[in-house]
Design a protein around this nucleic acid. Sequence first.
DNA 1: CTACTGATTGTTTTG
DNA 2: CAAAACAATCAGTAG
Length: 188
Amino acid sequence: MSHWTLVERETAHTGGSQSLKWGGEGGIDVFSPMTKIRRFIMKGGKSKSDTKSAKLSVNKKPTTKAGGRKSGKAAKDPNKPKRPASAFFVFMEEFRESYKKDHPKNKSVAAVGKAGGDKWKSMSEAEKAPYVAKAEKRKVEYEKNMKAYNKRQAEGPQADDEVESEKSVSEVNDEDDEDGSGEEDDDE
DNA sequence: CTACTGATTGTTTTG
DNA sequence: CAAAACAATCAGTAG
């Protein structure tokens, strides 16, 4: 299966990576980001789960994480903050360990995902509460992270376009880096 | 060697 | 407002 020839948008965004090895002048498409194609295919009929699950996800991950890029252009912005983990993901972090203990031999992320999702739905909102609370916190950190990131981008290279121009006013915002956030107030 | 795949749901983002 | 994209994970797979 290598000729779906379907490209919607540049798959390169976050991780940047995406194999744009197609420096071809013609610029036809990349044959592989099935990530999006998946939706396209499954959208039609789903015999497995009827409940809903209409949406699938796409994944892309630069293995090089933030440290090693390589020849091409993999990580454009190593400091680019990633989206905050949702409550579900926070719960998953724990769940993964649990699942790992129960199934040390399992190597499929899908298995854990399914199991986690199933349990997540099974949990009451009360149980999810702690996770949600944490998720909200992550969001705040993300915003803070983004703020710093934006600043960095503005300061570093000559950002001329694309910088959310604040039209106006004097927004002298002095956010000196690193504010020691209190962090952690437990209350369960 | 490096990027992608699988699968989950929730949030962030973009159109 | 709605749909898309992407967040972690881990080992395997393909180019």
